[in-house]
Computed example of a mutant assay.
Amino acid sequence: MSHEHAPHDHLVEHAAHAGDPLSRWVAVFTAILAALSGLLHYEEGVLQTQALIFKNDAVLSQSKASDQWGYYQAQSSKGHLMELAAELAPVQRQAFYRDQIAKYEDRKKEISAKARELEKEVEEANRRSEAKEHPQHLFGQALAWLSVAISLAAITSLTGSRKLFWLAGLMGAAGLGVSVFAFMQL
């Protein structure tokens, strides 16, 4: 089983074996950021999956609500036909048609209530999806900051520039700060 290394892995390993204290700090720093990135990738994936599930629930409920409104329209059309039949029917048959009209009106009330309940489910599922999307986007931003920090740390290994390492530290701190904010949104 082969294991592929990211481009910066070789540099980090080389720096860890070198005698330079800066290289050791860069190696430790990069390892910490890589571990944090793994955690954030996982959390981002969980949130994305949850947001998609809620969005799927919203679409399914919307479809059911649309079906109910279609059924409502069918009952309404039948009711209108019964009204027409009542007007055209002989007096002795009009009571039958009036009963049918009442039956269709009762069904329409039930159907309408069910459709409205499904529409509330749509709103709730969309709200829950959006609640997952916001921290997911924050985790994505945090990962971007951490990726920049890891890249700068890798370049620091090559150049030995302490200023570049400080910049990598600032980028890593920004990623950490955004990720903490994202966790607070959960």
Results as ranks from 00 to 15, higher is better:
Met1Gly: 15
Met1Ser: 10
Ser2Arg: 13
Ser2Glu: 14
His8Ala: 00
His8Ile: 07
Val12Met: 15
Glu13Thr: 04
His14Phe: 08
Ala15Cys: 06
Ala16Gly: 03
Pro21Ser: 06
Leu22Lys: 02
Val26Tyr: 04
Val26Ile: 09
Phe29Ile: 00
Thr30His: 08
Ala31Gln: 06
Ile32Asn: 13
Leu33Thr: 06
Leu33Lys: 02
Ala35Asp: 15
Leu36Met: 14
Leu36Gly: 12
Leu36Phe: 10
Ser37Gln: 12
Tyr42Thr: 09
Thr49Arg: 05
Gln50Met: 12
Ala51Tyr: 06
Ala51Leu: 06
Leu52His: 14
Leu52Tyr: 09
Leu52Gln: 15
Ile53Met: 09
Phe54Gly: 00
Phe54Glu: 11
Phe54Met: 05
Lys55Ile: 02
Asp57Arg: 09
Ala58Phe: 08
Ala58Arg: 03
Ser66Asp: 10
Ser66Arg: 11
Gly70Ala: 07
Tyr72Ala: 03
Ala74Tyr: 03
Ala74Gly: 07
Gln75Gly: 13
Gln75Met: 13
Ser77Arg: 09
Lys78Val: 10
Lys78Ile: 07
His80Ala: 08
His80Arg: 13
Leu81Phe: 10
Glu83Ala: 04
Leu84Trp: 12
Ala85Val: 00
Ala86His: 04
Ala86Asn: 08
Ala86Tyr: 03
Leu88Ile: 03
Pro90Met: 00
Arg93His: 15
Arg93Pro: 05
Gln94Val: 06
Ala95Val: 10
Phe96Pro: 02
Tyr97Val: 01
Asp99Val: 06
Gln100Phe: 12
Ile101Gln: 12
Lys103Ala: 12
Asp106Leu: 12
Lys108Glu: 07
Lys109Cys: 00
Glu110Cys: 03
Ser112Trp: 01
Ser112Arg: 12
Ser112Pro: 04
Ser112Asp: 07
Ala113Phe: 00
Arg116Met: 08
Glu119Tyr: 01
Glu119Met: 05
Lys120Met: 11
Glu121Gly: 09
Glu121Ile: 01
Val122Asn: 08
Glu123Thr: 11
Glu124His: 14
Asn126Tyr: 13
Asn126Asp: 11
Arg127Ala: 15
Arg127Gly: 14
Arg127Pro: 10
Arg128Lys: 15
Glu130Thr: 05
Glu130Ile: 01
Glu130Arg: 15
His134Val: 09
His134Lys: 15
Pro135Leu: 01
Gln136Tyr: 13
Gln136Asp: 10
His137Ile: 04
Leu138Phe: 13
Phe139Arg: 06
Phe139Lys: 11
Gly140Arg: 04
Gly140Ser: 06
Gly140Glu: 01
Gln141Cys: 14
Ala142Thr: 03
Leu143His: 02
Leu143Gln: 07
Ser147Gln: 11
Ser147Lys: 14
Ser151Tyr: 11
Leu152Met: 06
Ala153Lys: 01
Ile155Arg: 07
Ile155Leu: 13
Thr156Arg: 05
Thr156Trp: 07
Leu158Ser: 05
Thr159Gly: 07
Thr159Asp: 03
Thr159Ile: 03
Ser161Pro: 02
Lys163Thr: 15
Lys163Tyr: 14
Phe165Gly: 02
Trp166Leu: 14
Trp166Arg: 15
Leu167Thr: 05
Gly169Phe: 00
Gly172Pro: 11
Gly172Ala: 10
Ala174Ser: 14
Ala174Gln: 04
Gly175Met: 07
Leu176Asp: 00
Gly177Tyr: 13
Gly177Cys: 14
Val178Lys: 12
Ser179Leu: 05
Phe181Glu: 07
Phe183Gln: 08
Gln185Pro: 13
